[in-house]
Design a protein around this nucleic acid. Structure first.
Length: 480
RNA sequence: GGCCCCAUCGUCUAGUGGCUAGGACACCAGGUUCUCAUCCUGGCAACCGCGGUUCGAUUCCGCGUGGGGUCACCA
């Protein structure tokens, strides 16, 4: 039996700050699965917590998804039949649904103050009992409760969780998960400000928007039984659940957290990671294609990805591997692409007219685009030299001779090409019988101020005749 | 702590009731080379433990251990 139900997946971020890389990775999976099945991927904004809203966060959320090269079929700016796609614009729906549950006696009004709830929980904790709502307001009769509501008393609506029942659901990666309803708190559905809580809003929207598969972080597993209870209360069919393992900190300890490094999807881009590399990295964390490839395009991924094959194990976010992968993507860019990508990372004093000369020299040395400044600054900023370093492998007389002869040879060069520069320097080295390692390294230090640099002749060429002359002269003075 | 989830090299993974347990990152060594990087060669390195089931378990089951998640009028 096959039911050809349309595959509809969704991502439902809340506009409370930067999008987490874990969310972006989850989004990718939802996106890919929908695309693979010619279904729809929906973006829904979950802005039900008015206290935590951050201004501008909603548009940034949309922007960062686009910056990663992804998109949605329905959602803000992409109208479908199921809108609106912003929860704050759907409040009446949730109100109505909550009311339905009250009428069916599956939910109840609660008038307890936050202070009281805190005290109850404290007492429970002191007794080493699990903290849970003590159902104080459940004892109110319907009439009493309604009277208070009519009198304008502040209230929340809570789900009446049945006692001692098995609540079951199936997770595609883990099989059946069973929790006793005694473990579940009488969940708040409508807050005292009239907004729904996450649980009510999500269940309602996922149902109304006909979401078929929910792929989301594993940290939600323990809240799924609450959802199942809600689905039951409404008489709705739950979707397929696929809980995706969380990312662990690079040190392997705990869920990836801000305290231990970058977690913002935006920040990784700002640090010079390419979105394609990020996506590719997300793909192979916890999943592998049938063959042994690790470099995959989005198209290939969409073709081959199957949620069933995701590993159920939490994975360490291995920055070393991400850097390696980013390096590959940078090296695979053609020159004009690289030139474009690198623009935002060029320091203000970078000589743009020399970009074509300099960029090829560092392309295969870049792991992240933001390294460009560090790798190129000697081309356009003054360098520090110490005579001791220049004299490390030869005495003063030899070094002065080397500097002197190199300077005049390069000065008289009319054809400033890599080939000519190489010829001049190699000739000098051979005819004077200088030690090649010493001579080249000394020149490298004089030209770049460091022991590590791109190839010498290309570097001299890119630096230009004038600056080369200045640096040689300066070194001569320093040593003399 | 209660509840839930997970377990192959340090990390990400492939894989099978019988294999020299494969690949990638990292690391180490060598080659190329004016240094570094790239590139090429090679090396180190794993089935968490104990019980079952079985002729045979890394693979199936149980227990233990370890790791992770979660316990709000936040999502």
């Amino acid at each position: 039996m096959t039911i050809n139900k349309t595959i509809r997946t969704r991502m439902a971020p809340s506009p409370t700050g930067d999008m987490h890389v874990g969310s972006m990775a989850t989004l990718l999976k939802n996106y890919a699965f929908a695309k693979k099945n010619n279904g729809q991927f929906i973006l829904r904004i979950e802005d039900t917590d008015q206290n935590r809203l951050i201004k501008g966060s909603k548009s940034e959320l949309k922007q960062v998804i686009h910056d990663y090269g992804l998109d949605w079929d329905e959602g803000p700016d992409r109208d479908g039949k199921y809108g609106p796609y912003v929860q704050s614009q759907r409040l009446e729906i949730y109100q109505k649904k909550a009311k339905e549950l009250i009428d069916k006696d599956l939910a109840y009004y609660c008038f307890c103050s936050k202070d009281r709830l805190v005290k109850v929980r404290e007492a429970q904790r002191a007794e080493k009992k699990p903290p849970r709502y003590d159902r104080h307001c459940l004892s109110l009769s319907k009439e009493e409760a309604q009277k208070k509501v009519d009198a304008g008393k502040k209230y929340v609506i809570r789900l009446k969780v049945p006692a001692n029942q098995e609540v079951k659901f199936t997770d595609l990666l883990r099989g059946e998960i069973i929790v006793n309803s005694n473990e579940i708190d009488d969940q708040v559905l409508i807050k005292s400000d009239g907004y729904p809580t996450y649980h009510l809003a999500v269940v309602t929207d996922d149902h109304l928007m006909e979401i078929s598969h929910i792929m989301r972080g594993e940290e939600w597993i323990s809240s799924t039984p609450k959802r199942i209870l809600l689905y039951k209360a409404f008489g709705w069919q739950p979707p397929v659940y696929i809980h995706i393992p969380v990312f662990l900190n690079p040190d392997g300890k705990g869920k990836m957290s801000k305290r231990k490094g970058t977690v913002s999807a935006r920040l990784f881009l700002d640090q010079g990671y390419l979105p394609e590399a990020m996506l590719n990295f997300f793909m192979i964390l916890g999943w592998a294609p049938k063959d042994q490839r690790e470099i995959l395009t989005l198209e290939e991924y969409i073709k081959e990805f199957n949620p069933k094959d995701i590993s159920a194990k939490s994975v360490v976010f291995d920055l070393d591997k991400l850097k390696w992968m980013n390096g590959i993507y940078i090296r695979n860019l053609d020159f004009s692409q690289l030139k474009q990508r690198v623009q935002p990372f060029l320091p203000t004093d970078f000589p743009t007219e020399k970009l074509d000369l300099i960029l090829p020299l560092i392309k295969e040395r870049l792991e992240t685009l933001d390294q460009i400044e560090q790798l190129t600054e000697f081309f356009y900023r003054d360098i520090e030299l110490e005579s001791a370093k220049l004299l490390k492998k030869a005495n003063q007389k030899i070094v002065l001779d080397e500097l002197n002869k190199t300077q005049s040879a390069l000065d008289s060069l009319t054809d400033w090409s890599i080939e000519s520069i190489e010829q001049v320097i190699r000739n000098l080295q051979e005819s004077n019988d200088w030690k090649r390692g010493q001579y080249f390294m000394m020149l490298r230090l004089v030209i770049t101020g460091r022991k590590i640099s791109p190839p010498l002749f290309e570097t001299i060429h890119a630096l230009g005749q004038k600056l080369t002359r200045e640096r040689l002269a300066k070194a001569y003075q320093l040593v003399a």
